[in-house]
């Protein structure tokens, strides 16, 4: 992790400049992993194809399952593959592994005393990372999917703009969840177990395995209200135009609400962690 000091500071403008610089750093850092990016694009494309075939078979048996036609179902698959690395909730590769390691080694104590806000710092870096992943690992699999299968991509620029906003919120919710997971390391000797469980919950409850609208009955309704649906289900539905009119704002508000709640929880936990570090000396 790099610490970048800005001179003076204090003013809001200085803070914005600082976190913008952090985000740029996050972007640039991931931009250097070229082979990894290429390998990731390949993997996302392969997985996208495989899942697309099974969904084709499924929607062949039950057209309009979950209210999607086949092209929409396939679009859902490819949106998921395009966002997998960007949202980084199911797989590793985000900031949280590094933060976990810093907690484990005790270096985090140094971070807590820096003049920058720990949560905002990591959030900025993670948004920068996500920005790169969206371009580097999102676009190509999506293009491949559109070439290989019939997708239902919208023509409306409004939907695409709303989709991008929804993706930004998805990353924020994902960040807030991973921040909580990483902070658990202050109390657990080894937080990798929590990380594994969190990844599993994300895989199942985000819609990556199967659209949440296909989940039956009350279980399905509950699952769609959980924060994980922000990571894949909601952005995909936004792009597919499933939220007509003001519903679009409602969907974004749903994501923003979870982001706010989880970020606040992160702050509380961070405060408790800081007290713990002060009392125990790390």
């Amino acid at each position: 992790m790099f610490w970048h000091r800005t001179a003076g500071g204090g003013a809001v403008g200085g803070a914005v400049a600082l976190y913008a610089a952090v985000a740029r750093g996050g972007f640039r850092r991931y931009a250097t992993y070229r082979t990894a990016t290429a390998a990731g694009v390949f993997t996302n494309t392969v997985f996208g194809c495989l899942i697309a075939y099974t969904f084709q078979a499924l929607w062949h048996e039950r057209p309009h399952l979950g209210g999607y036609d086949q092209a929409q179902a396939l679009t859902f698959v490819w949106v998921g593959q395009a966002l997998l690395a960007t949202v980084a909730l199911t797989m590793g590769g985000g900031f949280h592994e590094e933060m976990q390691e810093r907690i484990r080694s005790g270096d985090i104590a140094v971070d807590l005393y820096r003049p920058a806000d720990l949560q905002l710092w990591w959030l900025a870096a993670d948004l920068g990372r996500a920005g790169f992943q969206l371009l580097g690992r999102g676009v190509l699999p999506m293009v491949a999917g559109a070439l290989l299968f019939d997708l239902a991509l919208p023509a409306s620029p409004l939907l695409w703009a709303a989709f991008l906003a929804s993706v930004a919120l998805a990353v924020t919710v994902s960040f807030a969840l991973r921040y909580l997971v990483a902070l658990s390391g202050f109390w657990l000797l080894d937080s990798s177990g929590v990380a594994v469980l969190s990844g599993l919950a994300a895989m199942f409850f985000s819609g990556t395995l199967l659209p949440l609208r296909v989940f039956p009955g009350t279980f399905g309704e509950v699952v769609r209200m959980l924060p994980w649906s922000s990571a894949h289900q909601v952005p995909a539905d936004v792009l597919l135009g499933r939220y007509p009119g003001l519903g679009l704002l409602g969907a974004l508000a749903f994501q923003a609400g979870w982001a706010a709640v989880l970020l606040a929880a992160g702050r509380l936990l961070q405060a408790a962690a800081t007290r713990k570090v002060v009392v125990q000396g790390g």
Binding site: Y33, R34, T35, A36, A38, A39, G40, F42, T43, V46, F47, L50, I51, Y53, T54, A57
Partner: peptide, 21 residues
């Protein structure tokens, strides 16, 4: 290619995802 650990996932985990069906 030292950063290409992901590629084999396409054939192992990806293969498994395919062979399930």
């Amino acid at each position: 290619a030292q950063d290409a650990a992901q590629v084999q996932n396409s054939f192992t985990y990806g293969g498994n995802a395919m062979l399930q069906y």
